[in-house]
Design a protein around this nucleic acid. Sequence first.
RNA 1: GCCGGAGUGGCGAAAUGGCAGACGCGGCGCACUCAAAAUGCGUUGGGGCAACCCGUGGGGGUUCGAAUCCCCCCUCCGGCACCA
Length: 714
Amino acid sequence: MAGRIGVAERNTTSEEMPAGYDPGRIEPKWRARWETDRLYTVDDSSPKPKWYSLTMYPYPSGTLHVGHWYAFAVPDVFARLQRMRGYNVLFPMGFDAFGLPAENAAIRHGIHPATWTFDNIDTMRAQYRQMGAMIDWSREVVTCTPGYYRWNQWFFLRMLERGLAYRAKGAVWWCPNDQTVLANEQVLEGNTCERCGAEVFRRDLEQWYLKITDYAEELLRDTETLDWPDRVKVMQRNWIGRSEGARLQFALETSEVLDVFTTRPETVWGATFMVLAPEHPAVASLTTPEQREEVDAYIEAASRQTEIERMSTDEARPKTGVFTGGYATNPVTDERIPVWIADYVLMGYGTGAIMAVPAHDERDFAFARAHGLPIRVVIQPEGEETLDPDTMTHAYVGPGRMVNSGPIDGWRVPDALPDVVAWIEENSRGKREINYRLRDWLISRQRYWGTPIPVIYCDTCGIVPVPDDQLPVELPLDAEFAPTGQSPLVGNDAFRNVTCPTCGEPARRETDTMDTFMDSSWYWFRYTSPHYDQAPFDVAAAAAWTPVDLYCGGIEHAILHLLYARFFTKVCRDLGLTDHGEPFIRLRNQGMILAEEGNKMSKSRGTQVTPDELVRTHGADALRLHLMYLGPWDQGGPWNTRGITGMERFIRRAYQVVQDTREADSVQRETDSEVENLRRLTHQTITRVTRDLDGFDFNTMVAALIEFVNALST
RNA sequence: GCCGGAGUGGCGAAAUGGCAGACGCGGCGCACUCAAAAUGCGUUGGGGCAACCCGUGGGGGUUCGAAUCCCCCCUCCGGCACCA
């Protein structure tokens, strides 16, 4: 049993082992060999079980930095593990190539967005190849090509047929800098644009929406089945924002009816006034001539101040508002109650109107106190002093017995809540309702570099979908794309002026383009049959590969992309294109690699670290190991150039161990106990490496290998 | 304010109830060199000549035993934030 373990047999290989470790020679040699051998071209007909390992495709912004390597080279290690375990592994790559930065670069440098984009892709593709990852480049997907985006249009038309795409007028977020509307998901804290940081504001525009709210319940429920980081699931649940309650009707003296949503329907006997959002459509007709001036001034101030007020996180922000002069009737007490407007009521949630129950809601309490409105207690905490509206300093939000509430007096809440709702429904005062914070997805963009929305406006036929056989509606390359507030395609007559597909009369083409999140909402399906031209993807190929087994990417997509992708998958299922409703079984987020001084890497400040030079000086393998070794992968952290030499030393030592063994006398004897110890260590290392890789603990996995090599080389 | 996550050597970190600091960077010493770099070998939590003592944000508790579990507090990071 004497002799070196495992590696000794390699002595018989005829190939000459070079003198020292030289990554500059080894890496290009093997990359070329892998390519000629098509080692990483995935075979669809393989009998092996499949493993779909996906990493979020990059935006072609210019050149790669080490953050891109962190995102791609590390998951590549896991993909390789699965390959070694006998899986047929798909690890594809593409570019998320439509979007605003291309247009901005075009405007700044006077270069066409297409040129800028494809040049960047060429550069980045070459950089990616240095990684030595097992990417199957034959499946590359580039979303700004007609062969890809025509299927965005196809999806849009299918949704239009099913009522999942619709056009509506409403207050939408507008970015004055990017000159386009934004989805709710793209508006950040303080009402700033997700892309450029400019302050955004509301505009009334007619836009295209996708009805993601139809899937709200399912999107919420299915988070429970996902192997995703908890914080991502929590963020999605909060975003969807489900609340159970009831919808109640309050008759107005204008003979209109005002709907409110409430999570506390039992407190309706304590509703002493109502509050509408300043933008609420009923405000105009409700307002009496005497109050008109004050109301108009408040509405004006509210629309102007929204951004500033939003940013003030002051909890004790004063509850401003004005009386409209109008009255409503409380549906259970039949009392006449005043209707106010206030900016603490948001048009974007519920119905944009509330019944105010000051005794049992902190905000309503503050408002009532500020404006001298009546407070009526309807829940009395048990075993405590009787609540007195005149001396209360806070709303009472706890449990208790109903008082001053007619037929439900004495009921104990919240236990009796279901009975209260039943009473309300039986007596036709309202009905049970579940409300979501999630809004429909606004997809219209008044920009050039995106997928044209495939509809035509005809004076006689109305909105006419472009027939499938006329797809793709190609984005003309000769457009004037400088932003004007209208879609750049408005001025492109050749594009815009068409004949109606239905009646043949002159008509106008839609000139808005789609949100680029459309592109990324189904791209992983496309990788399974990237050249297929009968449908977005070959259903059989998709069935063989999807759902994605492991999806890696940044936490910044926790709600936007990941929610849209889940929505699209459910739509694909309902269209019969796939049989599952969740696209990504397992999700892992990498942390962010910061610049060496701890701030975000920035091209303009010159703190961006490019992999090319590091590959030249230390080799791709040392760089990959170093990225794995920086710390826990989901944590990220500041880049550290010095540490890479340690990984280089490690590789050299490993290389030396193998070389020494080759050169040593194959019958070199060692004591049985030494061999025994090495064998034990070998198996312990296998166990550690396997466990750590499965847990995505790449840093400790590398440590185990270093210890092993250290033991072998002493 | 609410919901998460974290706090350990000079630095990145490891250890999830059983010898704290594995592994790496950096430092120090030695070898090689005229010399330096690179490389290799050794050493490296703090204090002490030593035996030994101290040490995982702070305070308390559970336990034979706590970085790890429980309670209170402090700090940092992330998310949400007038959601009716």
